[in-house]
Write a protein that binds this DNA or RNA. Structure first.
Lengths: 342, 342
DNA sequence: CTGAAAGCGCTTACAG
DNA sequence: CTGAAAGCGCTTACAG
């Protein structure tokens, strides 16, 4: 269709149901039913329609289908990061329960930015998906309102959200930080540092729990918090550990907000001849792949992210089907995995 | 709308443009233009329409808009994995050029499965995005046909695809494998192993290049290939390295298909007292974050994934705008980064 | 088991 | 600067 040919048609050029139907020698509605697998079509017609569709490379126009049926087979999942393996695990696990039910998983990455998340919410709600999964509860008021107003079933993950009517699957981030502190304390460590990056709400909640436990033990030292807003990474772990050694060589225990930071610190310790755990004990967070193989193997807090994804997906499924959700708030807990670094 | 009330209407209950227009006392088309910010509407009318929309809580029905305008502000990116950081980097980089242009990035993860990728292609083409980015060229015939038939601009990434009319941004995987071999050879290594996991097409291309270079040097030993179809991981790197030590303790050089495998091997070497590079030299692939910090620091082949994403996004942008693409095939090369492990 | 008609809620192309 | 008509490509509701 060149520019010089002025036509009235607004066709996109893609094959349509009508063309498929024509090729198969049936009406469009029969073709529609055949393709959707509605039972009331003769087997031989179904085959002819499918063949025709295959031959033309036909793909249903979802906008038209959605407009006509006001239905969607999509579930949107909004995460703050994909560099953090944690969310990739959650995503895979959501995928594994929803895909077999015929849902398509749409992934939105907000890059830890509230505004970007709001845009994603607006975008996805413009053609409302069957359901939604969102990470955490730290979002703009506008995003919150749009989700509420849309009526789209939504499950919050990773944190225990307060508030009435909120469906959530997660674990107590604060409690996890507390557990890390108690473990280091039990190991006899008295000068414990908290090292964290990214500084998203969940990281800070872990820090809160850690701090509180140290305060209760009368061993909290505010100068022992090493925080960086940069993304969490192995390299940053190296740097932060070097900083600690320089500024506070007396530290004898460290809790890292994420395992990759701990991996970096372990490597830096190796290079500098600092012995772990005898000189400094280290505890990570998440139990990322690799943490079981570090040198020394990393003690860490394992988060139930696959389970979070699975349960969230199941809860969402129930909501989509209009079933009663017996347990709208699920706390999956966490597990301290003691290995060699502490 | 209860079940007992049989109506002909198929309305969704959401406020429509028509209602907004009625409230504002204008025609629907004027309301449409006012809301879209098309210039040819009187300022006072625009205000009245916007007020009406606000009052009714109107949200554009994206399906209807897409159907009527056959336009979309979405770009779909299909990757085989999100656990492999490489694709996350590409995604972020695509995001950073396309987001500012007003596009929404939709992510599809095929989990290295051709069938799953075909489903994703079908899904995303069902409401055709403005453009598409797909990884590699190993896909089902049906997927290939659907993409062609859709007319949606598409850029292939990560490999140098052959075939006429294919737009691609990548680098020569084969050449990278070859470079790894030549480096080990130059270091005087004579019994070089190839260790790889996942075994996707790109990994195998690297292996091909590696093998070819060894053959040319007359130093190829087929028993020195250690392949596992399992996903690439640090843990698997540990296992594979242990296997090599047991079966072929004479190996003096190893090329890993992905850095995480090398990280595992490095850790296992540390535990077993195998010295790297003096006993065994190691070369990784990708230069993942962390490779610069391993112990010893990993020699590896850095892949230009951020650049791949950037250039692919720019090329796609040109295609979407109907501009001439001067260079439809871009080979970005790769870089051997020599550090301590070889 | 199959089909003709109407409609989903927008925007395009054309007129004025 | 504004609008009436037609159309985007499907599916629903109704009839046979």
């Amino acid at each position: 269709m060149t520019n010089t040919t002025h036509r009235k048609t607004r066709s996109t050029g893609r094959p349509t149901l009508e063309q498929v139907a024509h090729l198969a020698g049936v009406s469009t509605i029969t073709a529609s039913r055949a393709l959707r697998g509605v039972n009331t079509v003769a087997p031989d017609l179904v085959q002819r329609v499918k063949d025709a569709a295959q031959e033309l490379g036909y793909v249903t126009n979802a906008a038209a289908r959605a407009l006509a049926s006001s239905r969607s087979d999509a579930v949107a999942v909004l995460v703050p990061s994909l560099s953090n393996l944690v969310f990739v695990d959650v995503l895979d696990s959501i995928h594994s329960v929803l895909r077999p039910q015929g849902f398509e998983i749409l992934i939105g990455n907000s890059h830890y930015a509230r505004d970007a998340e709001e845009d994603l919410v607006r975008h996805y709600l413009a053609s409302p998906p069957s359901g939604m999964v969102v990470a955490g509860s730290d979002r703009t008021e506008a995003a919150r309102r749009m989700i509420d107003a849309s009526g789209v079933p939504c499950v919050h993950i990773m944190e225990m959200s307060r508030g009435p009517g909120v469906h959530c699957v997660g674990f107590a981030q604060t409690g996890a930080g507390q557990a890390a502190a108690e473990h280091l304390l039990a190991r006899g460590r008295r000068r414990n540092a908290f090292v964290a990056a990214q500084l998203d709400p969940r990281i800070m909640q872990r820090g809160d729990g850690f701090r509180r436990a140290l305060q209760e033990a009368g061993l909290y030292d505010p100068a022992l918090e090493f925080l960086s807003p940069a993304p969490s990474s192995v390299g940053l772990g190296c740097d932060l550990f070097a900083q600690i050694l320089e500024r506070r060589p007396d530290v004898d225990g460290i809790f890292f907000g994420n395992d990759d930071l701990a991996h970096g610190a372990l490597l830096e310790a190796l290079r500098r001849g600092v012995s772990v755990p005898s000189d400094i004990a280290m505890v990570g967070f998440n139990d990322l792949p690799g943490s079981a193989h570090s040198f020394p193997r990393l003690t860490t807090i394992r988060t139930p992210r696959a389970e979070v994804g699975r349960r969230a997906a199941q809860m969402l499924l129930a909501m989509i089907r209009g079933e009663q959700v017996r347990e709208p708030v699920i706390d999956l807990g966490f597990e301290l995995v003691v290995r060699e670094s502490s």
